[in-house]
Every structure is written in structure tokens, then in C-alpha cells.
Design a protein around this nucleic acid. Structure first.
Lengths: 351, 351
DNA sequence: TTGAAAGCGCTAACAG
DNA sequence: CTGTTAGCGCTTTCAA
């Protein structure tokens, strides 16, 4: 049964109907049920002031035409969509996926749906373009996990936003960060405690702007300094922050004469371990390896991966709480919360 | 500078403004620029019939108030949102993430944005609930990768939908499937070819309804039959279709006296390999292992994982092409396309 | 080149 | 308990 213009009644001078207009509307249901649009609306929204008999008629009509409310119209009228956007730079990273899962779970309890969008690309301008394009979310969570930063002034004034990670300049926005510096110091100290003196940092960056890689690199440097170990720039190895990147870095780690390696993420560490193995280098005996994030696969790798685990539950809970406050009208200055990390010791550093 | 009701002009008896109404509207911009709303609209949409001088005035006004078009209103009026939904049961699975990436990339070229939503849960009813809730996408891609099926009659009539995977009953809808049965037969044959006679299938299912697990199990059974090897139900091991599930299954694989194992997915296989290692069982010598999906990590595992690789590029390209056709008004009967698989042989079966 | 009118599908507010 | 009115912010049509 089609729902063309003839069946649904006059459509006025509607634009080419692509979506929406070709489906039955509330008016169609109302006409079929012999009531007004408002009554249909009341039934749909579960208002209790509707006579059972009327309700039944309306429900029958809705079923008959397979009525679906037009969420766009509803959102326009209500002034809210009920959907939160989660912007990630790269869904492909296990860390991101785990984050998305957590966020969906928690926001569901608040009655929101979550839509994940990938900002993609490698440049800020793509993030910027995405943010400037019209959004239809009640609020936004932005995870700038690795390469992307949010250009200041990109966000609409007063739009409920929480940034996850710490790569944002705009301090008027809520942030929930991870103790990247402290976490990586933990990892580095762990290897130093094993008696290693030439610890490489794979996926590091010595840039000026404080993005995740840079923060972690600083934690690495700090741990060396505190331990009185000389910082050797040759041991800081920039790579793509993914598994192939880590794999490719193995050669450089060995070339640099490292006797241990901390990695910017678990994904990188898993690649590195395999790369080392490919070169006949045993982990942990010759080069113990530490990652960061504690993704699920780390405990199933061979060897299992020692890693720095951020408190993801707290990260998610805090971010969502902040966002919900903002959506509830809270209009104070930007807040910053940092969640702590702990070291999870596994086979990749078991000497 | 706030944009309360006083600044923006009368807001009528608007509902509590949560989103949208608190931001400047086209009317505000128009007033500030001393033109009509239409002119603002023309400028925004890049129409060329606007005098340069007028355009400049409008653009200045837009910048002054940090105007952002309300995408909800625009979508209602235009009848389309420009967004495609990608429904996945579980973003957490690497396979899903890779799929999402591919879909985003391709649809971007068609000018669409992609929003990923997780249907979650383990039951069909959650998928159903999700589908029944008001969607605001121009079209929908549904990946029912593992446990979820789409209940018939759940989808709106005439709504552009393409199902990825093959767990759907409704044949009026376009499907792009993977040759699950043939693929798993390939994997099984590979192990039989290695001289193994007690090949286990981890993550299998002997159910009636044709979901992904069942299809793959049938491929397994078929390969055994063709090779003249007896089918032993004790070698079909149901598990959670994830890495911990595979890990836990190791004990059963050994208990069943298997001398090889095919797994329903790479995620499961990676867990299984680690589980076998934990029990002192060497892969591939004692138990060679094969996965399915060829996720990125499979080539970086230790040992690297032999797997069945579906042609993901074709999967994505075909699905998107079908969806675009539907959105363009194509209204023919449901189509079915199946993409083929190839075996990628790696260390986990290198004897 | 610009603008007035009309209305997308829905719902808050208020009457009947 | 049910219905009327009046828009949400935008864009199509068509006239000025």
C-alpha cells in the first residue's frame, strides 16, 4: 500500500518529497480515525486524558497506515531532538569504540540516544568543517583522541559541549581529561624500575601544542628526569598512532638501541610487539613493552600487554553528568576534571 | 553576548527553549542586516542572484551573531536530512568499526553524513524498539552482524534500507550478504587439507533461523561432508562471539580432543589462540586456528591469524549504491547481492 | 535582485 | 475528554 499524495490528502506546494512527505502524517491518521490531530498526538504521547474507546480507534488507525511520527517535525516543535552527538576522530581505534559503548550506555539511562560521527581526516580543518555544519543534537561530546584539536570559536555559543581528552584550547568549555602525563610517567617508571636505561617512547611528539601525544611525551620525559636518566631525543619515535604504525616503529626502536619501550597507545604497542618479534627480538626479555588505554585485546595478546588504564567509567560518568547539566541550562564557566590512571602489569614486562 | 528572548525578538509562546530557540535565527540576522529572511536564506544557500553589497551585509550580520542554521527546521522544510543512519549491534567489534569507516568514506562522496547508532542488547526486541523509534535519517544501513535479526514489519514501508549481513527475513528489503557458508567451508577445507580430522567450530550454532552463526556453521558442516569426515556435534562449540568468549572456549576445544579450530570471527579466534596458549597448547603445531573477517589486528597477532577475508570494499560499495538508488526513488523489489571471500593463510595454520 | 505568503508535521497552551 | 489556534525556523513559489 503506497502513500502517495493522492492517498494522503493534499500536500500543498510541498518540495519534492524525498523523505517524510511520502509517509502518512498525523493528519492522515486523524482523518481515518475520525478525530483531530491533537487527539492523535495525545494518544501518541501517552496522555491519560483520552477515552479508552477513542484511544483504540486512533491506535487502530495508526496501525492501519503504519504511522511513524516524523521526528524532524517533532524535534522542531519541541526544541530538542533527544539525541546526543559523539564526535570521534577515528572509530577504528578500539579505544574509541569502547568509549562509544560506555557513553551510549550511560546516556541511555538519561533517555538520550547517541549518534556517533567520525570527523575523519587528519587536519583540524575537517573537525572545524564538521562542527560548523549544522548539527542536530541536543548536546555534543567531542573526543579528540589523537590528531585533532577543536579550533577555538568553532563551537556555537552556549551549545552544550563536553570535550573528552585534553586537546582543546577553548577553556570556556567543559573538559574531562585523562592524566596523560602522570599515566605515562607511571609506565616509564615501571620500565626504569626494571633496570632499563634506554627506554624508547613510540608514538611520541615533541610539539608545542598540547595534544594527547605531546602530553604523554612530557610524562615520559618527566619520569626520566625524576629518575636521573638522560633524555635522548633519538628515543622518541613519532609514528602513526595505530597498529601498523607501531609495527613499523620496531625497526627504529632496535636501531636506537632501546632496551624497553613505552607506547602512546595499546594499539601501537600491539603492533610494536609484533614488529619486534618479526625481527627476532623477544618481548619482554630483550625489550619489555608498555601500552596505554587498556583496550580489551591487550589482555589477550601474546604476550599480554602491560598498560596504563585510565578510569574509563569515571571518565564517561563525569562527562555525561557535565553534559546533562549543560543541557539542563547550566551556564557557568568551563570546568576541567581529570581522571587518574593505574598501571596494569602483565607479561610484556614480566622479567 | 547572550541570545535570550529579548535580544532575539518575540519568541511567541515557544516551549521551554532547550535547543534551537536560544540561538539566533534567520529572522534575527535579517533584522540586523536590514533585509528579509529570504535574502538571508539566499545568501546562505549560495544563490547567485544576490547583489554583492547585500551579500556582504548579510554575511557580516551572520558573523556578528554567530548564526548557525537550524538543521531541524531546514530538514523539515526540505524533506531530507542529509544524514544516513548506520545501525550496528555492537560497535565494539573491530569488524563493525571497519565497516563503519568504509561506509562513512563512501557515503561522504555522495554528500551524505553518516551517524552510527548501536542497537545494543542481545535481543531482537531491542533492535525492534530502535527501529520503531522515530528515525531522522534519509536512509538506513543495518548491520546485523551477529545476534540480532530484524523483525519483519519493523521497517516503515518504502523507507530506504539496505541490510548488511544475512540475518533478515524480510525479502522485500535489499540485502548485501557475505558468502558465509562458502567462506567457512574454505576455512574448514584448509584445516582438513592440513590432515586434521577433528576440526572444532568455535562460536557455532545449530539453530533453525538463518543468522550469521548458523550460516557459518552450515559451511563448516558442508566442508566436512564433502571431505567425507564425520560431523561430530561435540566439536561445535557455542560461545559469546567476542574475544573473551573465544578465550573461554579453549578449554572446551581441548576437552573435545580437537586437532584444529575454525572460529566464527577473528575476534573469537584471537581469544582462542590466547586461551590455548594459556593451557600450554601450541598454535599452529598442536591446534591450527582459522578466523573470519580479516580484521586489522589479525595480521599483527602472534601468531598471525589465518582468516577468511570477505571483499569489504565491494560489500560497502554495493550497499551504498543500493541505498542511494532507493533514496533516489527506486521502488523495485528487494535485491540480494552476496560478496565472496578468500582465504588468507598466515602463521596460525603454517605447519 | 529582493520579498511576501504559505506551510513542512508536529505540539504547548488554552478553550469547549 | 477533545479540539482550535498558533506557531517552531526554514525554504519553495511567485510576484514586485
Amino acid at each position: 500500500m503506497g502513500w502517495g499524495a493522492t492517498v494522503c490528502g493534499l500536500r500543498g506546494r510541498a518540495p519534492k518529497p524525498i523523505l517524510g512527505s511520502v509517509y502518512p502524517t498525523m493528519a492522515d491518521v486523524a482523518k481515518l480515525a475520525g478525530v483531530s490531530k491533537m487527539t492523535v498526538s495525545h494518544v501518541m504521547n501517552g496522555h491519560h486524558h483520552v477515552r479508552a474507546e477513542t484511544r483504540a480507534k486512533v491506535e487502530a488507525a495508526m496501525a492501519a497506515v503504519d504511522y511513524r511520527p516524523n521526528s524532524t517535525a517533532r524535534a522542531l516543535r519541541r526544541g530538542r531532538t533527544g539525541v546526543i552527538g559523539l564526535a570521534v576522530s577515528n572509530i577504528h581505534m578500539p579505544y574509541t569504540a569502547e568509549l562509544a559503548r560506555g557513553v551510549s550506555d550511560v546516556l541511555q539511562q538519561y533517555g538520550y540516544r547517541v549518534a556517533i560521527e567520525e570527523t575523519r581526516g587528519r587536519s583540524e580543518s575537517e573537525t572545524e568543517a564538521w562542527l560548523r555544519s549544522p548539527l542536530s543534537y541536543d548536546g555534543l561530546l567531542i573526543s579528540t583522541s589523537s590528531l585533532h584539536r577543536v579550533p577555538p570559536g568553532t563551537l556555537p555559543q552556549g551549545y552544550p559541549v563536553v570535550v573528552l581528552g585534553e586537546s582543546m584550547d577553548d577553556l570556556s568549555v567543559d573538559h574531562v581529561g585523562i592524566a596523560n602525563k602522570a599515566g605515562l610517567a607511571l609506565a616509564t617508571r615501571h620500565l626504569l624500575g626494571l633496570g632499563r636505561t634506554r627506554v624508547a617512547f613510540v608514538g611520541g611528539s615533541l610539539g608545542e601544542e598540547t595534544d594527547m601525544q605531546v602530553s604523554r611525551t612530557r610524562g615520559y620525559a618527566q619520569a626520566l628526569r625524576h629518575a636521573g636518566v638522560a633524555f635522548d631525543p633519538a628515543l622518541v619515535l613519532p609514528t602513526m598512532s595505530d597498529t601498523p604504525g607501531g609495527h613499523a616503529a620496531a625497526a627504529q626502536v632496535l636501531a636506537a638501541g632501546a632496551d624497553g619501550a613505552v607506547c602512546v597507545t595499546d594499539s601501537v604497542a600491539l603492533g610494536l610487539m609484533r614488529g619486534l618479534a618479526d625481527r627476532g627480538c623477544r618481548v619482554p626479555d630483550q625489550v619489555p613493552v608498555v601500552g596505554f588505554d587498556d583496550i580489551e585485546l591487550s589482555q589477550f595478546a601474546s604476550p599480554t600487554l602491560t598498560t596504563v588504564r585510565p578510569d574509563k567509567d569515571e571518565l564517561v560518568a563525569t562527562a555525561v553528568a557535565m553534559l546533562v547539566e549543560r543541557m539542563g541550562g547550566f551556564d557557568g564557566p568551563g570546568r576541567l576534571r581529570v581522571v587518574q590512571c593505574e598501571l596494569i602489569s602483565r607479561e610484556s614486562t614480566a622479567l
